[in-house]
Computed example of a mutant assay.
Amino acid sequence: MKRLFLMSVLSLSAISFSFTSFAAPGHGGHHGGATGEPGKAEDVSRTIEVTMFDNYYEPETISVENGETIRFKVSNEGALVHEFNIGTAAMHEAHQEEMQMMVEHGVIKGDRIDHKMMAMDMGGGHSMKHDDPNSVLMEPGDTQEIIWQFTDATDLEFACNVPGHYQAGMYGDIRFE
């Protein structure tokens, strides 16, 4: 039932989002700049395991200390492609437009990623690579890591910005202790 609901949300969101021009900046713009910076493995103070399902994360809330470097071990246990992205609500909103473009151009295909399309030049030297250090885009069954240093205590969340997923509730809070 949850999967049918999510697929309906995905279909509706694909219709409702406006088209973004190919010339617009794509991924690789380091969307996490206001939330911290890529961390170094030797500075990791702890590892947090995050599991993605088709409309939620476990855990739903993560607590960090300002200046702390965390290794996130992220697993996609859902049936669809999902993202783990650290940012502010405004950053997620802006990133959703880029993710919509990835769906419209066949990079994200429900349960898989077309890596060949992702690397294609979309004009002006821009591609649809999803290579920001604060984010991972994963197919079902994948596990990846992010090492992130939280340098600015601000209102943060982690979210999946694949069209319709955030709106279906696929986000969680990052709280500073």
Rank of each mutant, 00 (worst) to 15 (best):
T35F: 06
E68T: 05
M99Q: 09
G26I: 06
Y171I: 02
M7N: 15
P59Y: 05
D152S: 12
M1G: 12
T47L: 03
H27W: 13
F176N: 06
N76I: 06
Q149W: 03
D121W: 09
S16P: 02
G124T: 02
G32S: 07
E97P: 00
I108F: 11
T51S: 13
T61G: 00
S75L: 08
V162H: 07
I62Q: 01
S135D: 06
S135I: 02
K73D: 09
A159H: 03
M138P: 01
K116N: 11
S63A: 08
G67S: 04
D131N: 15
M138N: 02
N134T: 03
F176W: 05
Q149E: 10
I147S: 03
V136M: 01
N55R: 11
G32P: 04
P140T: 08
E104R: 14
F17M: 12
A119M: 10
F158R: 02
E93M: 09
I174L: 05
F84D: 05
A89D: 09
K109A: 07
F22L: 13
G33Q: 13
L6C: 12
F72M: 04
V81A: 07
V64N: 00
A23M: 13
L12P: 00
I86H: 01
D132W: 01
S11D: 15
G33D: 12
G110A: 12
K2M: 14
D121N: 15
M102D: 10
H115M: 10
P59C: 02
M138H: 04
M99Y: 03
C160P: 01
V162P: 00
A159Q: 03
N134Y: 02
F150V: 02
T143Q: 11
D114T: 03
T151W: 03
W148P: 00
K129S: 08
E58D: 12
G39R: 00
M138Y: 04
M120N: 04
H31C: 13
R71W: 01
A159L: 04
I146W: 01
H82Q: 10
R3E: 14
Y166E: 07
M52H: 04
T143G: 05
E139Y: 04
P38Y: 01
R46M: 01
F19H: 14
I48R: 00
A14Q: 15
L10G: 13
G26V: 06
D132G: 13
A24H: 15
F19S: 14
